[in-house]
Every structure is written in C-alpha cells, then in structure tokens.
Amino acid sequence: MNMSTTAVLRSEWIKVRSVRSVSGSLIAVFAATLLVTLLVFPTLGQAEADKPDNDSLFFAFYALNFGQIAAISFGATAMSAEFLNGALRISLSAVPNRDLFYAAKMSVIGCLAVGTGLITSLGTFVVGQAFMGEYAVGLGESGALRAVVGGGIYLALMTLAAAGLTALLRSAVAVLSLLVPFVLIVSFVVGDVAGGAAQYLPDRAGQLVLHQTTEGSLGPWTGLAVTGAWAGLALLVGWWAVRTRDA
C-alpha cells in the first residue's frame, strides 16, 4: 500500500492543467515569444543585424526575453496554487510524504517547462530567421542547434528557479515582483557595469548558451550550468521549506 510515484505524478499533472492561470502562463511562454518574434523580426530584424557588434545568433533569441517572463510566471503560479487558502493542507493530506509531493510537483513543472521551452526556442529561431533575408542564420550553422536546445533548457531552469523560490516565499506575487524586475532591470544594469562577476547572475550566465561566441570565463554550456546551479539552489531552499514548515 505504498504511494506510487506514477500516481502522484499524474495527480500533479491534473493539478497543473486544471488551473487556468497556470496552464495559461505555460501557453504564454510560447505565445508571447512567438508574438514578439512576429512583431520584431519583420520590422527591425535586418536593421539590427546590420549593426557592427551584432551577435546574429544571440539576436535570433531576442524574443526569449519575453518568453522567460511567462516561464517565471508559470513556475511561480504552478507552485503558488498550493499556498492559496491552505490548499497545501489538502494536498499533503493526500500525499503526506513531502519529499515525494515536492519532487513530483517539480518534475511535472520541469518537464512541461522543458517541452514548452524547446518548442518555443525552436519556434522563435525558425520563424524569426525567416524574416532575416541575407542575414539569416541556419540551424546547421555553428552553435545554432546548441543555442536552440540551450534556450529551451534555459527557460525550464528559470521556471524551476521561480517554482523553488515560490515554495520558500509561498506567494507568486512576491516571487514575480522579485524575479521580473531582476531579469528586466537589475541584471541588465548591473551586467553592463560590473563586468566579470555579473556574468554569474542566473539570467546572464544562462543566456551565454545563445551566443555565437563567448568572451568571459564562462562558455555556453558552463554558463547554462551556472543557471542550473541557481535553479538547483532555489529548488533546495523550496524543498527545505516544504519539508520543515507546518502546512
């Protein structure tokens, strides 16, 4: 009569898809990215590519900046649904093994995020490059496939970081108002100023995988690994919180 991991995974899958704001943010990862791709590339794409210091591969994933906001919302809302009006008590009454509960939830969130991330990353690359004319980068070119795969993984890691942080802070609003300004502003500003250390910020490091060439001490995959470490840290503190706190 032990709990089956498959059963708990299926239960978490039902939970994710049955709350509209959660499934909505997941769809928004793809939808927002594609929308921005369609707005930017036909109009500004070729002009941007003409600039001398342009990394045309990195620019191909410009729209992921918006997709990652949706990815963060997905991770945050999927986890915060458990902290609304004590829903966690109902969940833990059904699955009192908190390690299993947390692992199953994060696995479902992570798998959905990787799947959606890869489709989104590939989608924005293919659609965007269709409008780039002579500047277009092919999937076969050096680093392109790595960037597409890495971009998908990057979105998933940001999702998991948000989910882990939500387990700690117990509020999607708190996590969103922390992570979104961080990604949009702090990292952007500090990144240009601080140089060396700034490349270890979670979003900066992970986005190295999207570059044709990297300059600092981090390569494309090691950069993504740094983001992975950040996400892992967030997942660990979330795990600790779910494990130790009264529900």
Binding site: A7, V8, I14, A87
Partner: peptide, 22 residues
Amino acid sequence: LDAQAAHGSRTARNHLAALATS
C-alpha cells in the same frame, strides 16, 4: 479541514480527480 481551501479555479471534478489519482 477547511472548505475554502480547494482552489477556486478548478472544477469540482478536477479537484476530486487530483486527490483520487494520487
């Protein structure tokens, strides 16, 4: 414990299904 704890966005059927499935 608390009838208000069920997530308002879910349907009654999905709420029970998530619990039952686990």
